[in-house]
C-alpha cells in the first residue's frame, strides 16, 4: 500500500509515492537521490541525517516519510544556489571543519537552522545547536569555529540588507 505525500523539498513542490513504513531518510536518499542525508546511527544519536523541517533541525531517521506531507523540507543539497556555496559551507571550508565529511551535511543543517532563527548566537547557543551532531574525526573545535565564522559572515550581510531597503 502506497501513500502519496506532497511537500516542499529545497524550494520545489514535489509529490512522492511512499511506503508507510519508510523513514524520511530512506525516501530522501533512495527516491529523491539526496545522498547528502547520511545514515549514521539510525536511532537519533549522531545527527548525520539532520534535515530542516519547517525551520527546525530534526533527525530524518526518526521521522516517517509520511510525516513530511505538507511540510517545508531542507537538505544540504538545497544550500548551494546557482553554483554558489552557502556562506556556512564556505565557513566550513575556510576553517578546515571537514575531515572525512560524513557528519558535515548534518552539521551544516544544524548550523543553518540556528542561523536562520538567531541573528547573532552566543557560543553557548551555538554549542547547544550543535550537540546533537557527532563528529568521529573529532574536529569539533574547527566546526564550532566555522559556525562562529558563519555568524560573522551573516551579520554584515544583514546590515547591507537593512541599508539597501
Amino acid at each position: 500500500m502506497n501513500l502519496e505525500i506532497d511537500f516542499c523539498l529545497n524550494g520545489s513542490e514535489i509529490r512522492l509515492s511512499i511506503k508507510p513504513w519508510e523513514t524520511a531518510l530512506d525516501v530522501l536518499r533512495n527516491q529523491s537521490g539526496l545522498t547528502g542525508v547520511k545514515e549514521g546511527c539510525g536511532i537519533g544519536e549522531c545527527g548525520a541525517c539532520t534535515i530542516i523541517i519547517d525551520g527546525k533541525a530534526v533527525n530524518s531517521c526518526l521521522i516517517l516519510a509520511a510525516q513530511l506531507d505538507g511540510r517545508k523540507v531542507e537538505t544540504v543539497e538545497g544550500l548551494e544556489v546557482d553554483g554558489k556555496m552557502h556562506f556556512i559551507q564556505q565557513a566550513f571550508l575556510d576553517k578546515g571543519a571537514v575531515q572525512c565529511g560524513f557528519c558535515t551535511p548534518g552539521m551544516l543543517m544544524s548550523a543553518k537552522a540556528l542561523l536562520d532563527k538567531v541573528e547573532n548566537p552566543s557560543t553557548d547557543k551555538i554549542v547547544e545547536a550543535m550537540t546533537g551532531n557527532l563528529c568521529r574525526c573529532a574536529g569539533y573545535v574547527q566546526i564550532l569555529e566555522a559556525v562562529r565564522e558563519a555568524t560573522c559572515m551573516k551579520a554584515p550581510l544583514n546590515k547591507d540588507d537593512v541599508t539597501n531597503s
Binding site: 545527527g47 527546525k56 533541525a57 530534526v58 526518526l62 544544524s110 545547536a129 550537540t131 546533537g132 551532531n133
Partner: peptide, 9 residues
Amino acid sequence: VGSLQIRNV
C-alpha cells in the same frame, strides 16, 4: 532531553 533535534520533535 536528547539533543535539539530530539527536543524539536
